[in-house]
Design a protein around this nucleic acid. Structure first.
Length: 190
DNA sequence: CTCTCGATGCACT
DNA sequence: GTGCATCGAGAGA
């Protein structure tokens, strides 16, 4: 293993900053020894109690309690009847906050991901939050997983991505606070 | 490529 | 009962 796992400190910063810095990092899923991985190419920041679009906005509930817990852990939720979404808890000086991982670019075990998704089209394999969780077999079993330890799910560091490569846009698929440019994507990666 | 729309099940009120 | 941090298929351009 060349790449280092991102330390807890990485997540102990402003949620929006962490969202931007997570672009280009490697998301790793270990399924009983089989390593599925991909580069994170799209994230969104949901900064806790001040953000009306955040799940944490309404206060702590059974569903979102991970967002109020220690940073560097996974917050996974179920939505629209079919889909899980993966977040990383990240915050500083606020009670709750997290980064939604929206898209990755597959690196290892691509065939396994295709099998999990029952499709072959590479373009649509992992380019959405619900698709990532399906391709990597992420579900509520992994709720609260510590992503700073080598386990079933973690995130590795890589070389830095240039600021100019990252594009900030408004977030997608939400009804409130649509205008905050807290979605980050890599301009192109191919 | 774009847009629209139904499926789907769980948490919350 | 309501609403959702979505996806995929299908129609049109």
């Amino acid at each position: 293993m060349k790449n280092k796992i991102l330390p807890r400190k990485f997540y102990q910063r402003d949620t929006v900053t962490v969202a931007k810095d997570l672009i280009g990092k490697i998301l790793v899923r270990n399924i009983s020894g089989k390593i599925l991985s991909g580069v994170i190419v799209e994230t969104e920041a949901y900064s806790g109690l001040e953000d009306p679009a955040s799940h944490a906005y309404i206060g702590e509930t059974k569903r979102n309690m991970a967002l109020f817990g220690p940073v560097g852990h996974a917050y996974i939720y179920f939505t629209y009847g079919n889909h899980f979404c993966l977040n990383v808890v990240a915050k500083k000086n606020v009670k709750a906050g997290g980064v939604l991982i929206r898209a990755i670019f597959p690196l290892q075990e691509i065939e396994e991901m295709q099998k999990n998704r029952y499709i072959k089209n590479l373009k649509t394999l992992t380019n959405g939050p619900g698709k990532i969780t399906q391709a990597l077999k992420i579900d509520k079993e992994l709720y609260g997983t510590d992503l700073t330890k080598k386990g079933p799910l973690y995130i590795c560091d890589t070389k830095k991505i240039k600021e100019s490569e990252i594009h900030a846009t408004p977030r997608i698929g939400i009804k409130k606070a649509k205008d905050n440019p807290w979605r980050f994507v890599v301009k192109k990666l191919k």
